[in-house]
Design a protein around this nucleic acid. Structure first.
Lengths: 248, 248
DNA sequence: TAAGGGAACTTGTACAAACAAGCGAGCACA
DNA sequence: TGTGCTCGCTTGTTTGTACAAGTTCCCTTA
């Protein structure tokens, strides 16, 4: 059962995408939408709030809402999982484990993941058969077994872990910056040492806030771009100085 | 007059920050909070929704809400304006115009900004007296005059434009990736040519959705990091393949 | 012609009530 | 012992109402 406001949001999103409400135009008023969809004003407000949060619509008190853009935000899964993102966007992709070992957690890792033992995995990911991403992931001890049981060429670790032990990745914190390719990066990605890479470091947790993994992903320059929309009201992305957290 | 739900959100945020509600703990139920703050449940829900959107609190139907983290999202202004971000975070900073000229808009720029004439500005920004950012901005023709009237060492263009002509930057779209430093970048930032830079391209518009500026900012590696929190429910950041939009 | 004041319109805030849906603990039964 | 089910708790959805606050546009007035 999908909520009413979600269906209304979906219809409005479609109308924006198909040009019924072109970029730059005004959205109908809440009262009009309420009449059209035979819903209470509060329900319509919830629907529009979804689009505002996605950055598609701008809103401020007293003025009619305005269509800002058409691009649609992707799901958490698509940001989190390379496989799910690539699949949703129609790319050919692959993955291969290049190395894997259990070891004791460093003090930093213990603080981050809350376990004494960790599993360290090095993966290389390809897009359209080109290597684009080096993924260095450290899993908390309590999922290590399930990860080790996966085949080395497993396409989507996220999906595989859900299937095998019902693990759901629910929350993530991401840090994004640029670094120079190290010797190993360069060899794996087929670029020169020192060439620019886009780095995404992240910690992922379950619904309960229990840390599952800590990962450092390095993308070959030009292969992927992160995109965000923000407004004076809603602002999810944050800029920080230097390497404050997450260590070196 | 600050809204009730915002004051409640503020108090809850403080409680999280000061450890009254530690990371990993459960937040009080809506009913408890409603009693405590003598507000309707709906108002409390609005307050908590703010914290959920900020990524501080996780929420799902049926289960008690959980505190995920303490870091606070910064405002739109702080993401958008280097000066406002630096000031809010207690950094010493500066800026200097290195070049500026009016010219006809390219076809791409006309499509983006909606004007035939543009003003191109090259700025160098410093943090703690170190050059960290090269900013190449193209302003729409209708703000060119106001921008040219600013002093070359103007610290905050955003604030200056608001003061002089009441211009409000309201919405932004950002693309983030990594590039190699060009000859000019290298000279200005004091790094070697080809060394990694974090690139942030953005378009900013007014409340009405009217484009004001198109900018490409290049940060020296290690100087700044972009940070984001997302969840299975709320996901503002998006990953894209290659250079799809915004051209080269 | 330009500035100012209002009136209509539109979005934002707050409260109240009722039901739906998911979670988790405890209990009963095999 | 442990499996499954039920019941209470908690969050999610929807409607209705009333008022607050900001915008926009028109009309008056200097």
């Amino acid at each position: 059962m999908v909520a009413r406001y979600e269906r209304i949001a979906e219809e409005l999103r479609d109308d924006i995408l198909t040009g019924v409400h072109p970029v730059g135009s005004q959205l109908p008023t809440e009262a009009e939408l309420a009449t059209r969809y035979e819903a209470a004003r509060g329900t319509v407000r919830q629907a529009v709030a979804v689009l505002v949060a996605e950055g598609l619509v701008g809103s401020r008190q007293g003025a009619r809402r305005i269509v800002l853009g058409r691009a649609r935000s992707q799901s958490f899964a698509e940001l989190h999982s390379f496989a799910q993102w690539a699949r949703a966007n129609g790319h050919r992709f692959g993955g291969q484990v290049m190395g894997q070992r259990r070891r004791d957690a460093s003090p930093v890792e213990t603080a981050r993941l809350g376990t004494d033992e960790v599993l360290e995995v090095l993966r290389l990911r390809t897009l359209e058969c080109e290597p684009v991403l080096v993924e260095r992931t450290v899993y908390a001890g309590w999922v290590a077994g399930a990860v080790e049981a996966l085949p080395p060429s497993c396409e989507s670790v996220t999906e595989a872990l859900y299937d095998s032990i019902g693990l759901v990745f629910a929350y993530g914190e991401h840090l994004i910056d640029a670094v120079a390719a190290g010797a190993e990066d360069a060899r794996l990605l087929g670029v020169r040492r020192g060439s620019p890479l886009l780095r995404q470091r992240r910690i992922t947790t379950t619904h309960e806030g229990r840390p599952v993994e800590w990962s450092e992903d390095r993308y070959r320059a030009g292969s992927v771009v992160f995109s965000i929309r923000n407004s004076i009201d809603a602002n999810p992305l944050v800029r920080q100085a230097g390497d404050l957290r997450f260590g070196a």
